[in-house]
Amino acid sequence: MTNFLSRHGMNSSASLAERVLVAARAVILGKDRELRLALACLMARGHLLIEDVPGVGKTTLAHLLARLLGLEYARIQFTSDLLPADVIGVSVYDRAAESFRFHPGPVFSQVVLADEINRATPKAQSALLEAMEERQVTVEGETRPLPEPFFVIATQNPLFQVGTFPLPESQLDRFLMRIRLGYPAAEQEKALLAGEDRRSMIARQQPALTGEQLTALQQQVVAVHAAPAIIEYVHAILALTRSSERFLHGLSPRAGLGILRAAKAWALLEERDYVIPEDIQAILPSCVVHRLAASEYGGRLDEDAVMSEILDRVALA
């Protein structure tokens, strides 16, 4: 998916991002769109939630992204007996220094892979989710900043699975995007079966970006231009979700900012330094569906219905 245009192409940054994508495609087959969305999410400095049934490669994707971005990486397997301290870290008395010394938890990594986040109790969930929001952790009265960059890539099972604690909408709002992987297509599945073990492939991957390059990419995302027409379009979408009877409540202003940021990252991936409506349309499903709740009790929103409700009804001039 490229465009007709080359005048405003941003070849250097696009090729940087392209490099990540090419490497990722080799490991994760046939999921080009999902890979691009995930990369756009991280370029927009957003946290990513991957939701799907077990075994479709959620963990692989998270692991791979950390690896390719050349970031320090920690994995937390969320279980029902996980304690907040297991996430944040604990202070232990150090006899030699005769004082408490803080042992930082896995959250003090640049990429935190929170695996099966909805298996943990709400208490453990909120320890992580608060760190995501503040980008710092307060332990025993002392505020410790988290590393920069800091990403949380969380995976969760669909809500109807047994033994899960669903994340409330207010917490879901902290994830910029939620993507679903879905089963691979037949050919890819066969290739997967025939091919090498994914884990060892990831271990062999070299980082595609340096830390500086990633920071530069993130800064370029911020600099992408959003014309007044685009702002108006995003606003119309927000207004529609607020007035529509199908949703319990509309999108928050934070969601609006998130949509714009994600669209900018997507524009950059499309080698453009400005946002066009198609960018919004491309990222919108991943950005809004998890933030909306159906208005009738127990009603579920499926992605296509939400998108047809929103995208079909907002006209473009």
């Binding site: 245009l5 005048r7 405003h8 231009h225 014309a227 400005y274 066009i276």
Partner: peptide, 10 residues
Amino acid sequence: DLYIPARYGP
């Protein structure tokens, strides 16, 4: 080529 950058570009 002309319209899109003009409308949405900086």
